[in-house]
Amino acid sequence: SPEEIKAKALDLLNKKLHRANKFGQDQADIDSLQRQINRVEKFGVDLNSKLAEELGLV
């Protein structure tokens, strides 16, 4: 269901964000992850996106 997909995506992105902060990645990478999280919260996951591929939806 779209809600489950959204939850999985947010979980994955939050893990990536945590790792980025923990290991001191570029601020641009961290900002990009934050924008992705905001986009998923607002609009859900686009099944044509790279994120959908990472989640194994495509």
Rank of each mutant, 00 (worst) to 15 (best):
G24F: 06
L10V: 03
Q25S: 14
I5T: 06
L12K: 04
D26V: 09
K16N: 03
K22D: 05
N48W: 11
L10A: 01
E3Q: 08
D26A: 13
K42S: 07
K8N: 05
A52D: 02
K6V: 07
Q27A: 10
L51P: 01
I37L: 06
L13E: 00
F43M: 07
A7I: 11
Q34S: 05
A9D: 00
K8F: 07
S32N: 13
S1D: 11
R35A: 13
K15Y: 06
P2G: 09
V40N: 01
N14W: 15
K50A: 13
S1T: 13
I5Y: 12
L47I: 10
I30P: 01
G56F: 06
I30T: 04
K16R: 14
I5W: 15
E54F: 09
S32L: 14
L17Y: 03
D11C: 15
D31T: 09
D46W: 05
R19A: 12
A28P: 04
I37K: 04
K15F: 05
L17H: 01
K15P: 00
A20I: 06
E3M: 08
K22Y: 09
L13W: 00
G56E: 05
I30A: 04
L33V: 05
G44K: 00
D31M: 07
L10Y: 00
D46S: 09
E3S: 09
Q25A: 15
L10P: 00
L12W: 13
H18E: 14
A7V: 10
G44S: 02
S1M: 07
D46A: 06
D26Y: 06
I30K: 05
S49V: 02
E41W: 06
D11E: 14
E53I: 14
L55Y: 02
H18S: 13
N48E: 08
G44F: 01
V58G: 09
R39N: 13
A28I: 09
L51Q: 02
I5F: 11
L47A: 07
F43R: 03
R19Y: 15
P2A: 13
G24A: 09
D26R: 11
N21W: 11
Q25W: 15
D11W: 12
D46P: 08
H18L: 14
E3D: 13
Q34G: 03
E53M: 14
K50E: 12
L47R: 05
A7L: 12
L51W: 06
K42G: 04
D31E: 13
G24K: 08
H18Q: 14
Q36S: 06
L57G: 03
K16D: 02
N14H: 15
H18W: 13
V40S: 01
N38F: 07
E41F: 07
S49K: 02
D26W: 05
A20H: 03
K15M: 13
